[in-house]
Design a protein around this nucleic acid. Structure first.
Length: 269
DNA sequence: ATGGTGGTCCTACCA
């Protein structure tokens, strides 16, 4: 069998439920991880997911901001919603799924703080929060052995680590999402697993790869000033099962799109 | 170098 996991920062699941429906119908992932759902759990459009065949949904939402969810065709167990930095933000949800008669897989879905505009933790509390969040991720991953079993970690990590993850390495060195301190800390998270960067298994490190294009460009495709802010990582134990990856760039051109596009990864069992 | 757009919810705040 083939397990397909997708991740997408939807930028309001209620506003874009029709785009979600289109994506699920056209690409039929087994599991979809969403970020920036921007609604309380009671306001989540659960019935739409059920109608589309995603009868297992685990939500961690809050009013107006952040919010993550996992919708699945396969049963989900052991749901966990971890708070980071004692902020009460809804930025993480984890579940366990079991691909037909195989070993269970732990799946973590993250929305890492964006970090504001000024890349100085001393004058920008949002950037300080982002760095503290990453520090806490490293400590937790090491202590709990998060990637010691079959595990997948996806989400909007709000960091573009490689030079080819941004349209201009030089222009973005002092722009939050690509500053050296964030890139270094994301590297510590990756190595704390240790995790495998599944997307870069399919696209060479020096080849441009983006999952986000700003709303502020006149023409996102023409200017193509993108960044790879969304990621799929797998535990080393699962790396041999990787069976393909796709970035659905075309969805950035759909009507009233999210500024992020879905990433799909296949695992063969 | 600047400001550009779009989300929530109603006044700024966040991305």
């Amino acid at each position: 069998m083939r397990l397909t996991v997708a991740t997408w920062n939807i930028n309001s699941v209620r506003l874009r439920i029709n785009l979600v429906a289109r994506f699920l119908k056209e690409h039929a992932p087994d599991v979809l991880c969403l970020q920036e759902t921007k609604c309380r759990d009671a306001e989540f459009p659960l019935a739409d997911f059920h109608k589309l065949g995603y009868s297992h949904v685990v939500i961690n939402g809050q009013k107006g901001y952040h919010g993550v969810a996992i919708a699945s065709k396969l049963p989900l167990t052991d749901a966990d919603r971890r708070g980071f930095c004692d902020k009460g933000d809804a930025r993480h949800v984890a579940v366990t799924l079991t691909p037909a008669a195989h070993k269970p897989v732990r799946l973590h879905n993250f929305y890492v703080p964006a970090g504001g505009d000024e890349p100085d933790p001393l004058i920008n509390p949002k950037f300080a929060h982002k760095l503290a969040f990453l520090d806490e991720l490293v400590a937790w991953m090491s202590a709990d052995g998060v990637a010691n079993t079959d595990a997948i970690m996806v989400g909007d990590l709000n960091i573009a680590p490689l030079e080819a993850d941004v349209w201009s390495h030089k222009a973005l060195l002092r722009v939050v999402s690509h500053t050296p301190i964030e890139v270094e800390k994301l590297g510590l998270v990756l190595r704390a697993g240790p995790w495998v960067d599944a997307m870069r298994r399919y696209v060479p490190a020096d080849e441009k790869l983006y999952t986000w294009w700003s709303y502020r460009a006149r023409d996102w495709a023409e200017s193509n000033r993108g960044r790879r802010l969304d990621h799929v990582w797998v535990s080393e134990s699962l790396a041999p099962r990787l069976g393909g990856m796709r970035v659905l760039s075309e969805s950035r051109g759909w009507e009233r799109p999210s500024d992020h596009v879905p990433v799909l990864v296949h695992l063969d069992y």
